[in-house]
Amino acid sequence: MLFDFLKDKELCSGNSMHYIILFNVSPPLGNVMKVIDTIKENENLKCLPMFLLTTSIDDKDIINSYTSHLNCYIVKPNDLEGLIKVLDTFKEFWLNIATLP
């Protein structure tokens, strides 16, 4: 569904809106990694910054995520206050400080 929405857009042409993709996934991460790999193989989409928000602290998941060119792996805090702080920090950095393609 996400790929269907994105596949015909020329998001890496420099002539489009800025997009980021934030996946909120519970383990196992297998299906989302397939989606990330599919997006990164597409010339029109591979420049999109992609982030993973998950409860997994498994080293294998972390390594596989970065090997698949994920831009950021975020482990969800266990409490609402911590999650709000993480999301506020994420928003501040990626939407106000970083330069997006």
Rank of each mutant, 00 (worst) to 15 (best):
P77M: 02
F90R: 14
I62W: 00
Y73E: 03
N31I: 10
E41L: 07
P28D: 05
I36Y: 05
L80G: 02
L2T: 09
T67M: 01
I36C: 07
L95G: 08
K85N: 13
I74V: 15
K76W: 07
I39G: 07
A98T: 06
L2Q: 02
N44S: 14
L83G: 13
K9G: 10
Y66L: 13
E41M: 01
N71S: 11
S26T: 06
T67V: 05
L52Y: 03
D58Y: 13
I21G: 03
N71L: 08
N96T: 15
G30L: 05
I63W: 01
S13H: 10
N15Y: 02
I39P: 08
F3P: 04
I84C: 06
A98G: 05
V35W: 01
P28W: 09
T99Y: 00
T55C: 07
P77Y: 04
Y73T: 05
F90L: 11
L48T: 07
T38I: 11
I36R: 13
I36S: 06
K85Q: 09
D8Y: 08
N78S: 04
F93Y: 12
T89Q: 12
G30S: 08
S68H: 13
N42I: 05
L48Q: 10
T99I: 12
G14C: 04
V25E: 09
S65N: 00
Y66K: 01
S13D: 11
V75G: 00
L29Y: 10
I63Y: 14
M1D: 05
L87A: 04
P101D: 10
M17D: 13
I97C: 02
I63L: 06
F5Q: 05
I21T: 07
V32F: 03
D79E: 14
C72V: 00
L11F: 09
V32E: 14
A98F: 03
C12Y: 11
I57L: 03
I62A: 04
P49K: 15
M33N: 00
G82L: 07
D79F: 10
D61L: 05
D79H: 13
V75Y: 00
K46N: 15
C47E: 04
F23Y: 15
I21Q: 03
N24A: 11
I97Y: 15
M1F: 03
F3H: 02
F51H: 08
N64A: 15
